[in-house]
Design a protein around this nucleic acid. Sequence first.
DNA 1: GCCAACGTTGGC
DNA 2: GCCAACGTTGGC
Length: 161
Amino acid sequence: MSSSTQNFWLMKSEPSVFSIADLSRKKKTLWDGVRNYQARNFMINDMLVGDEIFFYHSSCEVPGIAGLCRVSQKAQPDPSQFDRKSDYFDSKATKDHPIWFAVEVEFLKKYEPLLPLSELRKYHDLLQGLPLLQKGQRLSIQPVKQEHFLFIKKLVTNMIS
DNA sequence: GCCAACGTTGGC
DNA sequence: GCCAACGTTGGC
C-alpha cells in the first residue's frame, strides 16, 4: 500500500463518543485513542495527507457509513498516551519513545441518511474483500480499495437522489 | 443483553 | 514460543 498516490480508508467511531455531526462542527480532529497495532501501523505507514476516509458509525442503532473526511495531517504521537487522566493513558509510553500515533482528519461530508451496513451487505459480490463485510472484522481503521470506494460513493449518491 | 470472533497477556 | 484465559469489539 505504501505508494505516493491516494489511498482510501474506513474509520470507525461510536457516535455516542464522537459522531460525524461532531466532526462537522469541529471541522478537524486528531484521531486519537487508537490502541491496536494494525490500525496504528496503517496510520504511520500508509496514510497520506489527502487520503479519503469513510466515517463509520459503529455500536449504535443503525451502524453504517455516516460521512466522508480526509487526512489533513500525517501521523503524530498521540498525546492521550501521556495523559494520566485519559482513558487512553499508556504507562509504557514516553515522549522519547511514543507507542501510539494519530492522524488529523478533516470533515468533508455528512451522509444523510447514512448508508447502513445492512444496505452494503446487499452488494457483497461487488464489494468482495471489503474488510468491513468480513465476519469477525473488528479493525477500527481499514483500507478500502479504490474501486470499492468509488462504488460506495455511487451508492450514497443514488440513495440521496 | 447475548455471544462470536478477535487481540493481548502472562505462565510455563 | 505455545496457548489458555481474559478483555474487547460490535452486530444483532
